[in-house]
């Protein structure tokens, strides 16, 4: 069996890391599974450029279209489910857990696909101001979001953090879990085949301790979703985020299958509320 190299996913392409560095993913028994790109600061920079250039168009895409694309992602994932199960097993999941994880990931995409054209109605308001003005508040995507995917949770953890970000019209750069990078990159292939415009999602593999700093300090990132329970990492993220007043969302879920692991409120976490005023003739 050949040792496949899993590449990065940036701007709709699958480049190798510019750094030329690789980590070898091994099974729990120490057998080499694959070469994993050890993404660098510069890879991240490229990914943010890609995310930024995709942001305006994706943010302006119709809710219907975004829903369609997320649903398409679910379909594509379903079509390749067996590969994901296999890769999850390679990454230490039991067959049963791997199947459950994959199925739940598909369901989660369908769940958020359905929210695409509804969350706006849930979080918007028409405000009864006293003056003669029409006044409404509605959601807009925050912009470019950096996501540090959870260490555990396999594909489901990744999908659960990614889907609410993009269904709301944000673009994102995601750092895959160090424990499950294979499924992250294979998921990128799913995205690639799902009509998702290039740059909307960019996925890096690599080491969190190296990349946390650029992820949280980048001045062109509008929000960061930190998944994990390491208080030092969380503090560093929150501290660095202050550099450009990034919105910081910290998620720590023990159970990605629980009902709490999906919610429209998670979409709202990376939305801005914009209030618009216009006079009404008296």
């Amino acid at each position: 069996m050949i040792l496949k190299t899993y590449k990065l996913y940036i701007g709709g392409k699958f480049p190798r890391t510019e750094s030329g560095r690789y980590d070898i993913l091994k099974t729990s028994r120490g057998a080499a599974v694959a070469n994993i790109c050890r993404g660098s600061r510069k890879d991240f920079r490229e990914a943010v450029v890609a995310a930024r250039s995709a942001a305006e168009k994706w943010g302006a895409a119709s809710a219907f279209l975004r829903g369609q694309i997320l649903y398409r992602m679910a379909e594509m994932l379903q079509g390749r489910a067996s590969q994901f199960v296999q890769e999850l097993e390679l990454q230490g999941f039991t067959l049963r857990a791997a199947s459950r994880n994959t199925e739940a990931s598909i369901d989660r995409l369908v769940y958020y696909a359905g929210w695409a054209d509804k969350f706006q109605q849930m979080f918007s308001s028409v405000n009864p101001v006293s003056s003669s003005h029409f006044n409404f508040s509605m959601c807009e995507p925050t912009g470019v979001v950096a996501v540090l995917a959870p260490g555990e949770g396999g594909l489901l953890g990744l999908v659960s953090c990614l889907a609410p970000v993009i269904v709301g019209g944000n673009t994102c750069t995601l750092l895959a879990s160090q424990s499950t990078p294979l499924t992250a990159i294979t998921f990128a292939e799913v995205l690639h085949g799902s009509d998702l415009p290039a740059g909307v999602v960019n996925i890096l593999t690599g080491r969190r301790d190296e990349l946390l700093e650029p992820f949280s300090t980048h001045m062109d990132v509008n929000a960061i979703v930190y998944c994990g329970s390491d208080s030092k990492e969380r503090q560093e993220t929150r501290f660095n985020a202050a550099g450009n007043v990034k919105r910081t969302v910290c998620r720590h879920l023990r159970d990605w299958y629980s009902p709490d692991a999906q919610s429209p409120y998670m979409i709202a976490d990376t939305q801005e509320i914009k209030t618009t005023w216009h006079p009404i003739d008296t």
Partner: peptide, 17 residues
């Protein structure tokens, strides 16, 4: 921007985010 005034400016209201 979080607040946009069209054909008006600097209007505020308790009910308006």
């Amino acid at each position: 921007a979080g607040v946009v005034w069209a054909n008006t400016f600097n209007m505020f209201d308790p009910s308006s985010p």
